[in-house]
Amino acid sequence: MPNDQDVKYAIEALLFASERPLSPEQIREAFSAEGGSASGGEASVRASRIKASLDELKSEYETQNRGFRLCEIAGGWQLATDDRFAPYLKRFFQNREKRRLSQASLETLSVVAYRQPVTRADIEFIRGVNVDGALKTLLEKGLVRITGRKEVPGRPMLYGTTKEFLEHFGLASVKELPALSEFTLKDIDENLLPPELKTDERK
């Protein structure tokens, strides 16, 4: 059984070497017993220990004001540079700069993100334009995926966002998306409301 400090720094090593965010479950796998190995097999490390180690690492980097941070992205943990050094990194890694999404892609993506699972027809109704091209781009980039089919005539495909979506925007989960500024009925002039909504409002 490795001691607490070893677990913590082993996790640090895993995060350091990983290109993708690592989930606590993936990290735990690294410690899982390997029967008959030279080391004689190590006992599995508890999930709570892993979580505690991650939290410790995160606060260590923060208090030491290091050049990188431990971030929660797409349900996992990832080492990422601190944005106060963005100017230097941007200059140095010019060729690595990610392409910004087009306005059409971004609008389509926002409908998918907030209304998922959603059909193409639903997206088109909201945006008022054909979204074939934008959806295709988003699917190719792996930001959107097909999640299933809607059980209505024609069984249209349903779309949802992916892990790559969360990574692209630096979000831990879709729950982190800010609330959509839903317009309320009060915003609409009384005269503009169809009769059935007017009665709703009075209740």
Binding site: A80, T81, K90, R100, E107, A113, Y114, G170, P178, L180
Partner: peptide
Amino acid sequence: EYKAFKEAADRLRGFEARRSGVFTR
């Protein structure tokens, strides 16, 4: 409704910009 999603898209654009200043392996 469209305006609400357009604003949401603007916020996503903001996240994208913030994320572009953060580098990973």
